[in-house]
């Protein structure tokens, strides 16, 4: 067991965990932040996507010992305008069905739009292909990303 000082959603927290514990389980079990989901545990589905210093990572495959002082951001923690635009676009397009994959989808979409404010279809394919939605909301995910890119207007 080791102690880690983390910055999660701009707040300093301290957790005790085994060094190999994936960030996903630290978030869910230690910090009771359940917005980040488990889907495969092997970086295959994207349900667990969070940001480390603004870049999307699969938290199921990110050992806590490798996080260091990088800022962790989860679905619960955003306040930047781009995030509101994405969440608003998700709501405006009625994207979710069951909703389970959507935290991860939204986190991937935010990362895409932060790096690339007006993504093409190919850019969207590339950025989002790691996120599975078994309910099949892909058409609307694409539409919502485009809406958010245009500042919320369709």
């Amino acid at each position: 067991m080791a102690t880690y000082q983390l910055i999660v959603n701009n707040q300093a927290v301290e957790v005790d965990a085994q060094p190999d514990t994936p960030l996903l389980w630290v978030l869910r079990d230690n910090l009771q932040m359940t917005g980040t989901k488990y889907g495969c545990g092997k970086a295959l589905c994207g349900a667990c996507t969070v940001h480390l210093d603004g870049s999307p990572v699969r938290s199921c495959s990110t050992p806590i010992s490798t996080v260091g002082d990088k800022k962790i951001t989860t679905i619960e923690g955003y306040s930047e305008p781009v995030v509101h635009r994405v969440q608003e676009a998700w709501i405006a397009e009625d994207v979710p069905q069951c909703g389970y994959c959507q935290s991860g989808q939204i986190m991937s979409a935010i990362a895409l739009l932060e790096q690339n404010p007006s993504p093409t279809d190919d850019d969207i394919d590339q950025a989002m292909a790691g996120n599975i939605c078994r309910c099949g909301t892909y058409v609307r995910i694409r539409r919502a990303i485009k809406r958010a890119a245009k500042g919320g207007n369709q």
């Binding site: 079990d29 980040t36 488990y38 619960e76 909703g99």
Partner: peptide
């Protein structure tokens, strides 16, 4: 009509099977 849980899903606060906080629960 949009689904009732839309806002909660988009902000990560919707409660799925493992998300319910059962006090003292072991895994």
């Amino acid at each position: 009509t949009s689904i009732y849980d839309l806002q909660d899903i988009a902000t990560g606060s919707a409660v799925f099977g493992m998300d319910y906080d059962l006090p003292g629960a072991k895994v």
